[in-house]
Simulated assay, not measured.
Amino acid sequence: MGLTLQDVAWHQSVGKLIDALDRPGFWIALVRLLEQYVEFDSWVALLFSDGRPQVFAECPGLDGGPDTLFQDYLAGLYQLDPFYIASREQRVGGQFRLADVAPECFEQTDYYQRYFRLNVVADEVQINVLLDGERTLCLSLGARQPFSPEQIALLGIIQPWVAALMRQRLAFESEFLASPPPPAPAWQNQLEAAGQKVENALTARELEIARLMLSGCSGKEIARKLDISAETVKVHRKHIYSKLGIKSHSELFALFLQAQKG
């Protein structure tokens, strides 16, 4: 079977991107190429590590300036991002869709309602490239409507080219990569201090369960991740709420947001 015109156009475009690897506009050029094959509404190229995400390039906000919601994400909300959590728990390269990594109750969380659906809106696909030092290079594509099976399949076909280009680009991001990532916000300490009294400090297990709750994990998912019973999870949740003087997931999320600014 001979090459189609679309095949030729793709290979020509990839050739141009290889030529642009050392240029400032590489990420935009890569995104514009992807836009010819798959529709999406937002994008960001960033690096996940044990610190805060480092951004290589991102799409502008609606007014052409920085996206304020995305700044909140970088300040600490990323710790509830299913893609970030997945990149830390299971270091696997390749292409992932929101449905592949989102916890069971993700759409019921305050993080989803107050950030994700406003910023990403409906669906997200991320291409991950594993690096040394427990780092992951990511290209995320967000859409206002779910990606179709055909779009996901097409992205899967071109993903190896995209990932290879992303990896090769790193040779020209050496100055950026030399800067250590800003440390992650110690929101756990803020939650521990919320009780005011020493006896109200959350235990390490309670802090972990609080994070999993905020990220959208159901009681059964938390039990499975931590190898404890669902009833034990309920007891821990009751203790968390009691120690922090709160009664709901929304109040816990409010404390989390406050901790990002503390």
Rank of each mutant, 00 (worst) to 15 (best):
V198G: 08
V198C: 12
V198N: 11
V198S: 13
V198D: 12
V198R: 12
E199S: 12
A201P: 05
L202M: 09
L202Q: 11
L202F: 11
T203W: 14
A204T: 14
R205M: 09
R205D: 06
R205L: 13
R205W: 09
E206A: 15
E206Q: 15
E208D: 09
E208I: 06
I209E: 00
I209S: 04
I209K: 00
A210Q: 11
A210P: 03
A210H: 07
L212R: 09
L212G: 03
M213Q: 08
M213W: 12
L214Q: 09
G216C: 11
C217H: 12
C217D: 09
C217G: 05
S218H: 04
S218W: 04
S218L: 00
S218N: 06
G219M: 05
G219H: 07
G219A: 06
G219T: 03
G219R: 07
K220I: 07
K220R: 10
E221I: 01
E221P: 05
E221V: 00
I222S: 00
I222C: 01
A223Y: 00
R224Y: 01
K225S: 05
K225N: 04
L226K: 10
L226E: 07
L226F: 01
L226V: 02
D227E: 15
D227K: 14
D227S: 13
I228M: 13
S229T: 13
S229N: 06
S229L: 01
S229W: 01
A230W: 07
A230T: 13
A230M: 05
E231T: 04
E231H: 03
E231N: 07
E231K: 02
V233Y: 00
K234N: 11
K234E: 04
K234W: 03
V235E: 03
H236P: 09
R237H: 06
R237G: 10
R237I: 02
K238I: 08
K238N: 04
H239C: 08
H239A: 13
I240W: 09
Y241L: 12
S242C: 06
S242Y: 07
K243P: 04
K243S: 02
L244F: 12
L244T: 03
L244E: 11
L244D: 06
L244Q: 07
G245A: 07
I246W: 05
K247S: 15
K247Y: 13
K247M: 11
H249S: 13
H249N: 12
S250Q: 15
S250C: 10
S250P: 05
L252N: 13
L252H: 14
L252F: 15
F253M: 11
F253A: 12
